[in-house]
Nucleic acid binder design. Sequence first.
DNA 1: TCTCGAAAAAGTGCATGCAATCGTTGTGCC
DNA 2: GGCACAACGATTGCATGCACTTTTTCGAGA
Lengths: 234, 234
Amino acid sequence: MSGKRSLIRSGTTVDQMVRAIGDRIVTGFLRPGEKLDEASLAARFDVSRTPVREALGQLSAMGLVERRPNRGAIVAVVTQEHLASMFESMAELEAICARFSAERMTSSERRALEIEHQGSARLVQLRAEEDYEYFNTEFHTRLYRGAHNAHIYEMTVMTRSRLAPFRRAQFMLPGRLAKSWQEHDAIVTAIMRGDGAAAGNAAKDHVSIVSEASAVFAVGDQPKVASTMPVTAG
Amino acid sequence: MSGKRSLIRSGTTVDQMVRAIGDRIVTGFLRPGEKLDEASLAARFDVSRTPVREALGQLSAMGLVERRPNRGAIVAVVTQEHLASMFESMAELEAICARFSAERMTSSERRALEIEHQGSARLVQLRAEEDYEYFNTEFHTRLYRGAHNAHIYEMTVMTRSRLAPFRRAQFMLPGRLAKSWQEHDAIVTAIMRGDGAAAGNAAKDHVSIVSEASAVFAVGDQPKVASTMPVTAG
DNA sequence: TCTCGAAAAAGTGCATGCAATCGTTGTGCC
DNA sequence: GGCACAACGATTGCATGCACTTTTTCGAGA
């Protein structure tokens, strides 16, 4: 079991582990509070405990994992209060991104945002929750990038990752899809006008509503689909 | 060399290393771009390479060090552009903290803030840069805490740590001390009035000015004083 | 049956060792 | 004299092993 890796892997083993474990956390495959046994993880991914340990350390630094000295690691379990603080932060961060986007997006960025947004109207009529969820992520990522600020981008994507386990059910609420699209529309309109303040307010309201919708479902849900965890900036 | 640690240490060895190395980075003892040799660090702190490696991994996740696969780690070197993005983020974060502080601080928090602020006026007259710097950190930390939002607190403290190496010379500019105090005064006044918008604007202006002052000095400076790195929330 | 305690089992924390990779120096060739 | 290439040295990446801590289990006494 030395030397050869069975699968083709890019980057170092530790990076792979960070992605693999982090992915399972943000997609809900590993649930908050679940124990992360080093030996099991090592066996599961066919590596030794060392890279697993390093990965857990990094995930701990990111806030996805909680490490108790000599007592092992668990998937970070956040209190209701801390969860609320993250949603509130998310609203503020999105507001900043929207405001900056309104002020700074290039014309091609604006065009792409509008085209994608208009294209998604179809998904609402079809009630295609899964597809809309994908579009939704894309849409918000455009806002984060459009802010043209690398550090805010990092913080925002990071916060979104940490919130991911708690917001998966947001589009299950009846009528949420159409409402979401209208809220996006308000943001897009403001950005097109170059009205930073309005864009910021619209984005903040949008996230606040998502927050309330997600709070209902709070903890626990089944795993759905694997997605590469977008923890670091690109 | 197995088992016993020569010094009394709290927490795990890895935590110690994260603090020790991170401290040396944010205090400027280790300069951006400097090579971080695992063996040297291990020898320097009298531990094996394993905890050093883990610590470097965590610091990398925090953005304080940069790791190139198979090519070792260096103290994170930020481009002028990324530095600007961090200062801008800092201004936004401080604005949020000030706004929330104005809306949420308890009366005892307000009282403590005002008392400390008034007390610092003496330091300005004495031109006590060192002491004022300490007060300044305390003052801002009060704002971060006063926001009553754990996640924003984490992000703000984190960003401040990453900016620390670049803002050490801010009070060396002539007249900066008095100006800083006046800016603080505007923030405090707004908070006392409970005027969130005004507090936010005042805080944003304050940090923006610091940003410009620091940009002049940009990279490089001598180490000064060891301080426990406040990377994680408390 | 319940409680307390000690021994065993499990699991983490760190040190060490070896293989793989990168940077460098020296040598041959153009 | 300059450039390409190969061998060497230095350093990272990971596996393994052992010590220590925590948890669990089992048994004795109340």
